[in-house]
Nucleic acid binder design. Structure first.
Lengths: 189, 189
DNA sequence: CGAGTGTGTGAGTGGTCTATTACTCACATG
DNA sequence: CATGTGAGTAATAGACCACTCACACACTCG
């Protein structure tokens, strides 16, 4: 992280690492940290299972890297939303960012991974630290860019958590009042 | 094990089933559906792993039963809250029920299991059905007993999901503005 | 008492998982 | 061409896991 001399081109291993991170998102999104095997990850990345262990020290480190990658993607998404709102009132910025987050529902993978990360955070300290750090940055970013009051920020994240539920149980596919009560207004495109 | 000479008290299968369900909550609360072994469940219930399979057809059926058990407990909790509010205005009933739910944070296990159920719901259809049915009854109950408007009901459940996050990453233990922004006002005793 | 029924377990089976090791191959450079 | 290095893998060790089955023990009732 501190190149004290000349800058080097990205090595092939780094490129490979990046593609593994990207494909691992959908692998872990299916069945979570404990339910996903390193073979699953390897298959989706098109490499051998053994090579996963050359790129990452162990399964936990791989998962942590995937989680951090996802938090970065989500920050980007919120950032896009905030840019679209362009310095409006706090409520408007929050609305725009919420809209941006809700768009991620279409993908499913990203939100499901957030949910699985949350679950794994309860069990594994290293993952918990990563998730805490992710939310720390996210909350501070939202507070900073929107300037919204604390209760509004809290509600913003509560709505995000509701999105996770809606995606996990596929509430959209259920034609019933209860399902509509949960997912109404959480736009997804 | 089982030193000869000590007396053994047999319980009926139904009683045993009930104690297994109760202890299995904390077992699954730790590491979720995929991360928890049937041996873990058996140990906590004080029975052999083989006997788990006499009481439940397989691991999935056991987990579904545990999930249903938890939803029942949560309904009871909300019911207590509603009773305490005793026919006040919808907002007051919601507040009382939210308070009752927040009290469950002290236990941790119940909320964590809700979270893990949500995760497993994304992967296993049978579990998804159970979680859907659980939320269906919960939403209908809340709507019925509070008479609140749809957006308030939605916010009610969104707040519940936020509780899950706070418990999963133990945000209370973090002394930082972002952690306080998330958990502020979610009372837990 | 003795036969029957339900509670409970020890000892597996076959499969799968993480992680390691020893190896091959592609390719760059002198 | 010889040599070195990093990309990539096949094979496997060692530990578990879900699930099964034959059997033992406790209790009940004729």
């Amino acid at each position: 992280m501190t190149p004290s001399g000349t800058r080097r081109q990205l090595s092939t291993a780094d490129e490979r690492k990046r593609t593994v991170l990207q494909t691992a998102v959908s692998a872990f999104a299916d069945r979570g940290y404990f339910g996903t095997t390193t073979t699953d990850v390897a298959k989706r990345a098109g490499i051998s299972q053994a090579y996963v262990y050359r790129l990452f020290p162990d399964k936990e480190a791989l998962f942590v890297a995937v989680v951090e990658h996802c938090f970065a993607l989500i920050r980007d998404s919120l950032s896009d939303g905030a840019a679209a709102a362009g310095g409006s009132a706090p409520e408007e910025v929050l609305r725009a960012m919420g809209d941006a987050y809700a768009q991620l529902i279409a993908d499913r993978n990203l939100l499901l991974l957030q949910l699985h990360a949350q679950c794994a955070a309860a069990a594994e300290p290293a993952i918990r630290e990563a998730v805490r750090a992710g939310y720390a940055r996210l909350v501070e970013y939202v507070r900073g860019v929107s300037g919204a009051a604390e209760p509004d920020i809290q509600r913003f994240f509560a709505t995000g958590m509701l999105c996770h539920l809606v995606v996990a149980i596929d509430a959209d596919q259920v034609e019933a009042p209860w399902a509509r009560a949960l997912s109404e207004g959480l736009r997804h495109y």
